[in-house]
Each structure stands twice: as C-alpha cells, then as structure tokens.
C-alpha cells in the first residue's frame, strides 16, 4: 500500500506540472486552454529535437526550450488569444480547440504516430532507498521536487511581487487595473508565456519519464483539468494537492486492474465534483 501511495505521489508530481499552466491562465484571465495537453506533447517533442543539437543532455535542452516556450506563449497570447477574451467563453474555447487539432496534426506530420522518448542517461535507472523494501526512482523524485518548486515559485510570484499583484488585479477588475496603468494585453501575454514555459517543462519531463506521441494531448489535458478542479481554484497549492490526489487515485486503480487506472482517476474526480464542487481548497470570497 505504501508503495502504491508513494508511486501515486510521484506520478502526481508530473500531473502538477501538467496543470499549473492551466490553473495560471484560468486564474489570470478566465481562459480555458483546451490545447494545454497538446502543447505539453509539443514541448516533449521539441525537447527531443533540441537535445541532439545541444550535445544530448536534457538539462541543456531544457535551458534552450524554456525561453523558447516563453516566447511562443507570449506571441500566442498577444497575436491570437487576446482577440478571443471577453465575457463569452466560446471564442477562446473554439480557438484553443482548433489549436489543439492543428498541433496534433502538425506533430503527426513531422514526427509520425509512433511514441518517442528522451534519453535521461543514468537518471532514468537510478533509484533511492526510502524504506526496507521501498525504492523510488531518482527521475520521478526529481520531477516531484521540480513540481514543488514550481508551485512554491508561482505562489510567491503571485503573493509577493508587483507582477503577481498585477495578475491578481487584472483578474479581479481589468478596467480598474488599466486605470492604474496596467497594460492588460501585456500582463495576459506574460501569464501565457509563463504557463507555456511550465507546459514545456512538463513536456520535457513527460518525454523523459515515459513517451510522447502526437495523440496523447487530450488525455494529458484531462489530467491537468482534473488536478485543478479537485484542488479547487483557491491557490496553486490546491492544484498541487489535486494532482497528488489524482496521481494516487490512478495508482490505486491501476493496482486493481491495469486498465482501470485512468478510469478510477476520472471517478474520483467526479466524486469530488459531487461532494465538494468547489474543490478541496475553494477560493475564499473577499
């Protein structure tokens, strides 16, 4: 049982990275990015393509990939998504859905349908002994650590920095924030840029830990979404805990039957929706 829970938490680390970007974009501009999962897959493929160009090490590939993703996210928001914002969620949903289809088919054309992965070297086989019979892989542990750091970083960014204040202010009242001199178009673009960098990081780890293939995106989107909703929209810590709950749920389901993992995760999500529609950590109304 301990083994299952530990593996679930480690899986949750990856899901946390899947979901932070979604949570960030929704939190700042109420934009639901249906292309989230496909962008994660695209990030994974990008890492796979970049790695051989920079000597093969995934850390170096990541250092190249993240700024690139940041720029792509900024441009995407500035040039496309800012045009879809408004009271009606339909335009942004249709556009990100369309984007999801475009990315999937583009990846299929460029990389073909077969799954690929990124070589992690010694990291992929290394493990650390936690208990008498409990070993955890170094790579999953690293991913969990990065997820924790990313959550903490986002939380601090939001609560302590001027940019974080601007994020929260435009989310509360865009018009008044603009009165204070906030350029919301730019603030939104920075939010999406940050989210896209996190998405790329998630994709990098996904391609290191397992594989990526062009059709994976929608499922990853659902995992990200479930983590956000289970956690509630109160804070990034909520998303982190939601991802842990989802990871453990899937791992428990998987123990019963290899085909049940994802399905059981969905059921836990629906159960949380019934029992606590606002998630485990709901947003407190000021």
């Amino acid at each position: 049982m301990t083994e299952t829970i530990v593996q679930g938490l480690l899986l949750g680390g990856l899901y946390c990275l899947f979901s932070l970007g979604l949570s960030l974009m929704f939190g700042v501009m109420r934009l639901t990015n249906i292309a989230q999962g496909d962008l994660i897959v695209a990030g994974g493929f990008a890492a796979i393509s970049i790695a051989p160009l920079v000597g093969g090490h995934f850390v170096v590939a990541g250092l190249v990939l993240l700024p690139l993703a940041f720029a792509v996210g900024y441009g995407l928001q500035r040039l496309v998504l800012n045009r879809t914002l408004g009271k009606d969620p339909l335009p942004s949903l249709v556009v990100t859905f369309g984007l999801s289809i475009v990315i999937q088919n583009l990846l299929l054309e460029v990389y073909s349908a077969s799954p690929r992965s990124l070589e992690a070297g010694a990291l992929s086989t290394g493990s650390i002994q936690l208990g008498e019979e409990l070993f955890v892989g170094t790579l999953p542990l690293l991913i969990l650590g990065v997820a924790l750091a990313a959550t903490l970083g986002l939380q601090l960014l939001f609560s302590l920095t001027p940019l974080g204040r601007a994020f929260r202010a435009v989310s509360d009242d865009r018009e008044v924030a603009e009165l204070m001199g906030v350029r919301s178009a730019n603030v939104y673009a920075i939010a999406t840029a940050l989210a896209t960098a996190l998405i790329a990081l998630a994709g990098l780890f996904q391609s290191l830990r397992t594989t990526v293939s062009p059709a994976d995106g929608p499922l990853l989107l659902l995992f990200a979404f479930e983590s956000v909703i289970i956690g509630g929209m109160g804070s990034f810590w909520g998303t982190f805990v939601g991802a842990m709950v989802l990871g453990v749920s899937q791992q428990v389901g998987f123990r019963f039957d290899p085909g049940w993992g994802v399905w059981f995760g969905h059921l836990v999500f629906l159960a949380v929706l019934i029992v606590r529609p606002n998630g485990l950590f709901p947003k407190t109304k000021g």
């Binding site: 929704f26 109420r30 934009l31 639901t32 249906i34 969620p89 942004s92 949903l93 929608p218 989107l221 659902l222 979404f225 479930e226 909703i229 969905h266 999500f269 629906l270 929706l273």
Partner: peptide, 9 residues
C-alpha cells in the same frame, strides 16, 4: 470553459 472539459471527462 471548465464545463467544456468536464463534459469531455
């Protein structure tokens, strides 16, 4: 938007 993805789940 969360309704959209919820229906998908």
């Amino acid at each position: 938007g969360y309704f959209s993805i919820g229906t998908w789940v």
